[in-house]
C-alpha cells in the first residue's frame, strides 16, 4: 500500500466517521428537544386545560381559536392555491408568464412570516382600527397559497398526458377534463399537499402577533381579537411564574402532537396509495 493510497483510505475513514458524528450530534439535539417536550408535557397536561379558557388557566379557547384561524385560512388559501396551481400546470405550462409566477411563488414561500403579519396589519388592521380574527386568517392564507401552488403544480405534472388526451378525445372541454379527470387522478397528492400546508400554518405565531393578536376569552366572532394557542405560548413562556410556564409547555406539546399527527396521517395516506 503506497502513501497516496494510505492517505485516501485515511481521509475516507475520517470523513465517514465525521458524518456519522455529525448525524449523532444532530440527532442528540433533536432527541433532547423531543424528550423535553414529552416530559414537560406529561407534567403539565391535565384534563382541566381542555375544559377551561385562558382566563381560568386553561387552553380550550386557544385550541379552538387556533383551529378556526387555520381552518378559515384554508378555506381562503386552498382554493386560490389550487386554482393558481391548475393554471400553471394545465394552461400556462412553460410559458414565460407561468415560469415567472412559479418563481414568484417560490419567493413568496420564503417570505418571512412576520413580514406577512406586518403587511396584513397594514391592510386589514390599521384601516379598520383594531386586531381581528379575519386578519389573522388572511395572513395564514397568504402563507398557504405558495405551498399549495407548488404541490398542485408538481402533483398535476405527474398525471399522464394520455389521460387528458383521452378526455379531450371523448369530447370533454378542457375545464371538464381538469375538474373530472385530472384532479381526480391527482387527488391523493393534492390532499396530502393541503394537509401539509395546514400543518405548516397551524403552528405559526409571527403572522398572528399583530393581526388577530390574542384573546383570553372564548369567542367565535372573528371581528374581534381572536384567541391563539401559539401567541399565548409566546406570552406565557416569558412570564416568570411557574403555572404560566407550565401552561406554555402544555400548549407546546398539544401543538406539536397536532402537527405530528397530521404529518403521520399524511404519510399513511401516501403510503397506502403507493402500495395499491
Amino acid at each position: 500500500m503506497n502513501a497516496t493510497q494510505r492517505r485516501r483510505l485515511l481521509l475516507n475513514r475520517a470523513i465517514l466517521i465525521l458524518s456519522t458524528v455529525a448525524a449523532v450530534i444532530g440527532l442528540v439535539f433533536l432527541f433532547w428537544i423531543l424528550t423535553t417536550l414529552l416530559i414537560k408535557g406529561l407534567d403539565s397536561i391535565h384534563w382541566r386545560i381542555f375544559t377551561h379558557d385562558l382566563v381560568e388557566k386553561g387552553l380550550r379557547n386557544l385550541i379552538v381559536g387556533q383551529m378556526i384561524l387555520a381552518g378559515v385560512a384554508s378555506l381562503i388559501g386552498v382554493p386560490l392555491g389550487l386554482l393558481a396551481g391548475i393554471y400553471l400546470r394545465e394552461y400556462g405550462l412553460n410559458s414565460a408568464f407561468a415560469r415567472f409566477i412559479r418563481n414568484l411563488s417560490d419567493v413568496m414561500m420564503s417570505a418571512p412570516s412576520i413580514v406577512i403579519g406586518v403587511f396584513i396589519y397594514g391592510i386589514l388592521v390599521a384601516p379598520v382600527g383594531g386586531f381581528n380574527g379575519w386578519a389573522g386568517s388572511v395572513a395564514l392564507a397568504i402563507m398557504m397559497i405558495p405551498i399549495v401552488v407548488s404541490t398542485t403544480d408538481s402533483m398535476l405534472s405527474l398525471v399522464p398526458q394520455e389521460l387528458r388526451e383521452a378526455g379531450i378525445a371523448l369530447g370533454a372541454s378542457k375545464a371538464q377534463v381538469i375538474l373530472t379527470i385530472v384532479l381526480k387522478a391527482a387527488k391523493i397528492g393534492l390532499v396530502t399537499g393541503i394537509l401539509l400546508a395546514f400543518a405548516r400554518v397551524v403552528g405559526e405565531t409571527a403572522p398572528l402577533l399583530f393581526t388577530s393578536a390574542n384573546n383570553d376569552y372564548f369567542t367565535l366572532n372573528m371581528n374581534q381579537q381572536f384567541p391563539s394557542l401559539t401567541v399565548s405560548i409566546y406570552q406565557l413562556a416569558t412570564f416568570p411564574d411557574k403555572p404560566s410556564q407550565d401552561l406554555a409547555w402544555a400548549g407546546s406539546v398539544i401543538l406539536t402532537a397536532l402537527v405530528l399527527l397530521i404529518n403521520l396521517t399524511t404519510r399513511y395516506i401516501f403510503r397506502k396509495r403507493k402500495s395499491k
Binding site: 386554482l83 409566477i101 403587511f119 375545464a175
Partner: peptide, 23 residues
C-alpha cells in the same frame, strides 16, 4: 374556469407587489 385560474395565478404577483407597496 380558465379566467378564474388565471386570476388566481396573477394573485401571486399581486400579493407580492402588494407587500412591497403597502410596506
Amino acid at each position: 374556469f380558465r379566467l378564474s385560474s388565471y386570476t388566481a395565478a396573477l394573485l401571486v404577483l399581486v400579493i407580492l407587489a402588494g407587500i412591497f407597496g403597502v410596506l
